[in-house]
Design a protein around this nucleic acid. Structure first.
Lengths: 203, 203, 203, 203
DNA sequence: GATGAATGAGTGTTCATTCAT
DNA sequence: TATGAATGAACACTCATTCAT
């Protein structure tokens, strides 16, 4: 709605995700937006408030996406697998990990969580607890349906998610998020997912 | 050799690993060491030089450890597996990932690599390329020896290392490195390693 | 007349008398009034203009009160003393020193006069010159009437007013103007006034 | 000892006593001293610390003076009165109220006490409680010695101190402390003191 | 080896004010 | 009448660094 405020948020996220919160000055943001420093304080109480608004927006988006994912688990079994694959790839990879906004926030969290307990919790939630929790549920459903034999859904979730997490750190949360990076990530992830489901089918 | 210089290095690493390079001031370091700020400049050209010396020392240690690990691959096949297990656990986990010095440097790299291309390279080398490369070699040897059937050593390395990497990020590079964290990490890793080798044996 | 303007004046006086002119921001005033900062400039040219209007209003009130007091001196001698006592207490204490508006202005003057020559003059006029002048006149009348023997009306005025001034500073122009403060002030002043007139009667 | 630090203290006191603490900027002080703003922070933790050091020094001086005064009360009765007069004038007027350092601090307190509870207490102590307390003691001794007849030492103290307080506010804590101001103050006070002791002798 | 003293550049923030709407 | 938006000037304070001693 408000143009300047949005520009501030956008520029701030850009810079924060590149250098971290404290390494970016209000001056830096203003230079990009093209306003004077004092103007920032018309739109935000202080520097922290910019960060908070960015984070809050992320949590709204991410929560919505996760809801969508979880609804995928309710789908009738006959087209479960196919639907799941689509959801994980569509929702989780494309709209979440590789979405520009979410990706930048996660880079930012990657920086801040290391010296900020509050960020640590948020980071853990969105990068470890939530995804592992979801995958565990997936494997529970698959086990109940007899598609998967193993009963340790937890460990299965780790085995499934860990390589994806590694590829994320390697290709998604480093340097600029170029199309090349995304592609490398995608190739690696898809190969892993295929391998994984093939092996599962074998047993 | 020089006591004060060593104290500066130690204190700096402590603080850098907790808050990141730029968030730590010369003042902060001096407060811990118990000297005046100007004294730092007798021992180091500038703040960056402290960082460089810390990093260089790490690379010396890490290189030595990696050499030791690689030598484990030359061992005659009869006691290969047993020896390997010991090496990986002893060298890689205890002396590297959980060693106080190395751990601190890696936390520091975790912070810096996100907005510093040079650090990015170093981080990638020590946390992705080097470990994955080594594991690939291990599985190549095991394949040649007929112990492992799969021919894709690369993917095996990923499957083996990714959960360890995830546990590292989750328990080792967050908050303070308490004994509790270490223990949680150890339990998770050892369980994974056991699972992994059991499954490999099954096939 | 104008509601918003009056609210601004009231809130400003409240705040100015508590913290001094320069320590109160337009923001502070607006927060209390419930308007935006730019709106103030519709009603007043600038911050100083608010102050000026408050001061001017005070001078109108105070002048009127002082006129009333001075008229008390014209009263026929038979009920002079009784009438005087009532006037001094009613007009000077209750309607002037302890009246909410006047009290706030005088606190404000107490602050501003210390670093503002113009305020210095106004302060001196209303807190020293005017009251001492009036008391001198009172004692002149009493002397002429033979009620008082001393001829030095000036010094009598000081002896009469000084303790009142001290009590004012002690209880009226400090912290919040609570009923308790007022009462302590009243008790001390009345005791002094009684003592004073008793002693005068003795001689 | 340290020249620059002393200059900062001196200049700060000068400015604070003229405009109040918050109306004086570090820049202002530095302009007078002839140093850069950042240099101030080598000598003082922050702006408040300058104020605190000034106040503390004052309290040391003032306490010493008050001790000296109180020792005057122990003097044998024969030369009590004469000695007292000298002490009050020498110590209290010349070395305290009119001493440059003390005078400036008291002006400063006059400003700050109006919107700062801590300063309020200090102000009350040094300008009301302490002097009135001391005078009460003086009159108690004089009463015991039969020199004074009245038993209400408290009210005597007020009658003695109040005019002095009024003259202080009128001539000492306003504008610049010129020799002219001092002289006017002195004349008024000495006249009062003489009157006072004459009247006391009469009864 | 160490430090007292200083500094220039920079940081986040506040404030009175302006002006088009 | 009121406000959304902006701004220049100021503020207290921090930091890495220098240099004479």
């Amino acid at each position: 709605m408000n143009e300047t405020k949005q520009k501030i948020l956008d520029s701030a996220l850009d810079l924060f995700s590149q250098k971290g919160f404290s390494a970016v000055s209000i001056r830096d943001i203003c230079k990009v937006v093209g306003i004077k420093e004092s103007s920032v304080y018309y739109h935000f109480k202080n520097k922290q408030a910019i960060f908070n608004e960015l984070l809050q927006h992320f949590e709204t988006i991410a929560t919505a996406l996760m809801c969508q994912l979880e609804q995928g688990l309710m789908v009738p079994l006959e087209n479960f697998e196919e639907n799941l694959f689509e959801k994980i790839c569509g929702c989780f990879f494309e709209s979440y990990l590789m979405d520009e906004y979410c990706n930048k926030i996660m880079r930012l969290l990657s920086i801040e969580h290391l010296y900020n307990d509050e960020m640590q919790e948020i980071y853990d939630f969105w990068l470890f607890d939530k995804p592992l929790n979801f995958q565990t549920k997936v494997f529970s459903v698959l086990t109940k349906a007899g598609i998967v034999k193993t009963s340790d859904s937890n460990y299965l979730a780790v085995k499934f998610y860990a390589p994806i997490f590694l590829f994320m750190q390697r290709w998604l949360f480093c340097g600029a998020l170029t199309e090349e990076c995304k592609q490398t990530f995608r190739v690696n992830v898809y190969r892993h997912v295929n391998h994984f489901f093939n092996e599962m089918g074998d047993k």
